[in-house]
């Protein structure tokens, strides 16, 4: 029984993540407003990050973050540590991705503000009409 519930929850979470990614793509593709596109972009990027972290998760107990609590670990401490921690690689990659997404989002927002100054609108349909 436990096994079945665990499996259901695991697959359900994957589906929720993929559906949110789909939502983000939908927002970027369909919504005409530039700021709305940017919001969708942040949602897409954030969900991709959760996706990456979820890859590194393991269903054991007790589970701990990969931080050692002593400076001179003995063999026992290390073996104990190895059986409890999550994978440290996905968090490291995700931090990089968060910074990158944030930097690009900020740059795009600046571009959108500048576009509003020039065009007087943020609607991408109107912008492509006015380009001339």
């Amino acid at each position: 029984m436990d096994e079945v519930i665990l499996r259901f929850l695991w697959i359900y979470t994957w589906f929720v993540l993929i559906a949110t990614i789909g939502l983000g793509l939908y927002g970027i593709a369909v919504k005409p407003n530039m700021l709305k596109k940017i919001i969708s972009l942040t949602i897409l990027g954030d969900t991709a990050n959760v996706f990456m972290i979820y890859v590194g998760y393991r269903a054991v107990y007790p589970i701990k973050p990969p931080v050692l609590w002593t400076m001179n670990p003995s063999k026992e401490v290390l073996e104990n540590f190895a059986s409890q921690i999550t994978d440290p690689v996905p968090p490291a990659l995700v931090i990089t991705a968060i910074v990158i997404n944030m930097a690009i989002t900020i740059l795009i927002t600046f571009l959108a503000i500048q576009a509003y100054r020039l065009y007087g609108t943020l609607d991408s349909r109107k912008i492509s009409k006015l380009r001339g």
Binding site: V50, G56, I85, V94, I95
Partner: peptide
């Protein structure tokens, strides 16, 4: 999901 570093960075961003 046991990623305190991400919490720190992502809460801010």
């Amino acid at each position: 999901l046991m990623a305190p570093d991400i919490v720190l960075a992502y809460a801010a961003v």
